[in-house]
Design a protein around this nucleic acid. Structure first.
Lengths: 109, 109
DNA sequence: TTTATATATTGCAATATTACGATATTAATT
DNA sequence: AATTAATATCGTAATATTGCAATATATAAA
């Protein structure tokens, strides 16, 4: 198997899980933190900063871009990446909506 | 390959990514939502509710337990699972700390 | 004690992910 | 036009994840 049965879940569940999944890798967390901390937007510096090959970084950036949390703009021969603030806040809100669901007082454990 | 290079990232980055990763599957999102929505804590109902085999559900529950976001207590021959509220809030706070990092105004894109 | 019920674990097949070298592609520079 | 530099894509090997049947374990009920 190895195939997630996404058809048996709601659109909402699949979407939420996808957001979590994309953030669920230390390299992608590190990339986001790096982009946030530097005043300017970055690209190839990530290869030097993290100890990963250029192809690997490019792949992680692609995944982050796929959920829209970062965006890139071509600057000459390099690409400048930055956080998409609107999406960033949107993802945070989506997560908070999930966590703010009323947790009932346990009737067991 | 296929091996995440966790040694090149900080403890914090690995921990945060792990939390996201465990939540990054629709079945686990669905399990959490189900446990939250029902007043009482559940166990085998999940097998009926979601269309997954008992072994599969058990495995997902194990992963959720591994980060402490749910806990189970033995109730006769069944196990009652519920949200660990303390950890639940803790995870939410951890995520919010991450998202509340100051996003600098873009100098590109 | 035997049987039934609920959950966990094991083993395995199918698919996904991670990582990287090699190779495009694209744009600036010479 | 040729070269350099930055990034993306392709192909592939190694590992991880998902899912399930089969089996083990544990407790309640008969």
């Amino acid at each position: 198997m190895g195939l997630t049965k996404s058809d048996i879940f709601t659109e909402e569940q699949n979407n939420l899980a996808l957001l979590f999944k994309v953030l669920g890798h230390p390299a992608r967390v590190a990339i986001l933190q790096y982009i946030i901390n530097k005043k300017a937007c970055i690209c190839n510096d990530l290869v030097d900063e993290l100890g990963l090959a250029q192809a690997t970084i490019s792949q992680h950036l692609k995944e982050l871009k796929s959920i829209g949390i970062i965006k890139g703009s071509i600057e000459g021969k390099s690409v400048c990446y930055c956080i998409d603030e609107k999406k960033w806040n949107n993802v945070q809100n989506t997560f908070n909506d999930f966590f703010n669901q009323e947790v009932q007082t346990n009737q067991c454990c």
